[in-house]
Amino acid sequence: MLEIASAVVSYGRIQAVRDASLRVSEGELIALIGPNGAGKSTLLNAASGLLRAHSGSIMFAGHHIAGWRPDKIARAGLLQVPEGRQVLGPLSVEDNLLLGRQAAAGRPPRHALDDIYRLFPILQERRQQKAGTLSGGQQQMLAIGRALMGCPRLLMLDEPSLGLAPIIVKQVFDALRDLRETGLTILLVEQNASLALAISDRAYVMEHGRIVLGGPSAELRHDPRVIEHYLPSIDADASGDAPVFPE
């Protein structure tokens, strides 16, 4: 479904992503973990067309999409839930959801409004409320629902647990589990390594712009390097300093 090969993404002279490669097969939930500043969000933004990869290739559903406009990529079915939610605050919850349909581009709808409301009942209760007045957790649910209305073939989520209370994080991740059970393909960037590895099929570890580890999530949860460097500390790491795995 998605294959990124030897991607390099830079901000001026600074290489944020260096020779990074990953793949996501249809129906998989793939996690991308790592500390702040590792390049995880940059890699997602390159896949969705918000940033341009300077070299390497990005293929989605058999098409080379590097250089495509973000709207064309979204209409092809690669949709991103951005870090920070970015809902349209002055519009109602329901209007935000309906705007998500613009990305569907004629694909048969996978999720209707009623499906979103079943997944996140609070959104139905507040469907006429302005999105900007919702709590952070409710805005995160709305951002996910808006993307689902676009009929994604692959859904990318950037730090969905960021800044949320534990009870809301559980609700969001329960919803992701439900979506996984429906066969939706998901690429999840998440700094909470424990949650990400618990929910995903496979995972990649990124540090200093590079993919340094990858494999089945069940195996990575027991990998001594992941346990030492990530599982105890990544959720609290605010320094942006990444460990360096031995060769």
Rank of each mutant, 00 (worst) to 15 (best):
K72T: 10
P232K: 14
V212G: 08
A47W: 05
D178E: 12
A175Y: 02
E94I: 11
R177H: 07
K170M: 10
D95H: 14
E228A: 15
A20R: 02
P121N: 15
D19C: 05
P152E: 11
G56F: 06
L113T: 09
L113C: 10
Q139S: 11
L32T: 08
P121E: 13
G49M: 11
Y204M: 08
S57C: 02
L78P: 02
V81M: 10
P109G: 06
Q102K: 10
G137N: 09
H208Y: 15
R75D: 09
R18P: 05
I116M: 13
Q102D: 09
R75H: 02
R107F: 05
G240E: 09
M149Y: 04
R23W: 05
A74P: 05
V205W: 05
L197D: 07
H54D: 12
A66N: 15
A193E: 05
Y204V: 14
D19T: 04
A61T: 02
A105R: 01
G12Y: 14
D237H: 11
M149F: 10
I122V: 15
N36G: 08
L187F: 07
V17D: 02
L22R: 05
A76C: 00
Y230W: 06
P224L: 03
W68N: 05
I186S: 01
A143H: 12
A53S: 14
G100I: 00
F120S: 10
L155W: 00
K130E: 14
S92H: 09
R180C: 01
Q15V: 08
M149S: 07
G27I: 13
A198E: 15
L2R: 04
Q124F: 15
M149K: 12
T42E: 12
R18F: 05
G84I: 01
A147G: 04
L91N: 00
S55I: 00
H54M: 08
M206N: 13
I58K: 10
E159I: 04
F60C: 02
F173K: 14
L51G: 01
A242G: 13
F120V: 06
H229M: 05
E94R: 15
M59N: 13
Q191M: 07
W68A: 00
Q80D: 04
L43E: 08
E228I: 03
V24C: 07
T182D: 14
L78S: 01
I73S: 03
L51D: 07
A16F: 02
V169F: 00
G183N: 07
A196V: 08
A104I: 08
S233L: 13
A20D: 05
L22M: 09
R110W: 10
I58D: 03
Q15L: 00
D223K: 08
P224G: 02
V169G: 08
D241P: 01
E207G: 15
L197N: 12
L197H: 00
G67T: 00
A236K: 13
Q138P: 09
G49I: 01
G209E: 07
L99D: 13
E83C: 06
A193H: 09
P152K: 13
I211M: 12
Q80V: 11
L195V: 15
P121G: 14
L43G: 06
